[in-house]
């Protein structure tokens, strides 16, 4: 093991001169790569192979066709895409404002610590606690519902339900904003103070600075982060499961009910086909994200 680091001072390109050594060093990455392959690649493999076979194991395209043609699944896709897009955009815009508001505070201030740690918890906790918090706030007997009623606004009389698409969107934003704060903060920190000062010095107003200097620099990172938020909402299921127990047609709900086998025999493979559809959507999003990441990196090269 120790011999692997005999030339630690070598420049990144130097080991290329000794390919066999580079090969041995690459072994250090093997556990990570293998784990990824087995426990992420494995399930994905069975999703893909299952999507193309019928219940008896014969190859077929029927599952995919069914997953893309049935009206119930089309509705699920439409709802899922709408929910993901809307919450991604809201989360991205507000998350950026929040991140910038927090960044203008001193680096070790309680505000910054609070927001950065809370972002971590809220972005990754997701699911169950979130659903219950929103039921407690905006459910029939929730506290916020009661406050609003005493202020003369009766949510439920106007048709609102927490287990509706609107209620779900409101809940999703609760983890989308913190995720945006986490993703966009490095890009905001990358805005150098001398850019703002140079712009001011040349006669630019704050608005001109943001429009002509800061936003173009941020644009790729912002768009990339928005795509991750989209994927995040598209993939999310726990919140919907806990909040609505599956009453809103979303793609994950459709997959879960197809898998539970209480519909028809052979539906499990349609569930896998739906899973493949989801993966394809997300793969497209990821490719776009990676392309934007590379663009974003261009500005930071000096």
């Amino acid at each position: 093991m120790s011999s692997l680091l005999d030339t630690p001072t070598a420049a990144p390109d130097a080991p290329a001169a000794r390919p066999e050594r580079r090969w041995r060093a690459a072994l250090g990455l093997l556990p990570f790569a293998l784990y990824f392959l087995v426990f992420l690649g494995g399930p994905l493999y069975f999703v893909i192979s299952g999507a193309f076979t019928d219940a008896d194991g014969r190859p077929t395209l029927g599952n995919l066709v069914a997953s893309l043609m049935s009206p119930q699944y089309l509705l699920a896709f439409r709802q899922s895409l709408l929910l993901s897009a809307v919450t991604a955009v809201i989360g991205a815009v507000f998350g950026t404002f929040l991140a910038q508001a927090v960044l203008t505070a001193r680096p070790r201030s309680p505000l910054r610590r609070t927001v950065s740690t809370a972002s971590g918890v809220l972005a990754y906790f997701g699911g169950v606690p979130l659903a219950f918090a929103f039921i407690a706030a905006l459910g029939q007997t929730g506290l916020a519902t009661a406050w609003l009623r005493s202020a003369g606004i009766d949510l439920y009389a106007s048709g609102f339900r927490i287990d509706s698409l609107t209620g779900l969107a409101l809940t999703y934003v609760y983890f989308q904003i913190p995720l945006m704060v986490i993703l966009i903060t490095p890009a905001l920190e990358g805005l150098l103070p001398q850019w703002r000062e140079a712009a001011e010095n040349l006669g630019a107003s704050a608005w001109s600075y943001w429009r002509l200097v800061a936003l173009p620099v941020l644009a790729p990172a912002f768009a990339g982060a928005t795509l991750v938020l989209f994927g995040n909402a598209f993939a999310a299921y726990a919140t919907a499961l806990a909040l609505t127990s599956g009453s809103i047609p979303l793609v994950p709900t459709a997959i879960a009910s197809a898998l539970s086998g209480n519909v028809l025999v052979g539906q499990a493979n349609v569930g896998l086909a739906l899973g493949l559809d989801m993966v394809v959507v997300i793969a497209i999003v990821m490719v776009a994200y990676l392309w934007l990441q590379r663009r974003a990196a261009r500005w930071s090269r000096r």
């Binding site: 399930p43 994905l44 069975f46 999703v47 995040n232 726990a238 997959i255 898998l259 997300i282």
Partner: peptide, 28 residues
């Protein structure tokens, strides 16, 4: 030079839906 590749790879599980992972595992 691999840092960027790894960072992208580690984004994957955020967006590979748990429900799809679960579907694959359930099949097994």
């Amino acid at each position: 030079s691999l840092a960027a590749v790894l960072e992208s790879a580690t984004i994957l599980p955020i967006v590979i839906p748990p429900v799809v992972m679960a579907a694959g595992i359930a099949f097994v």
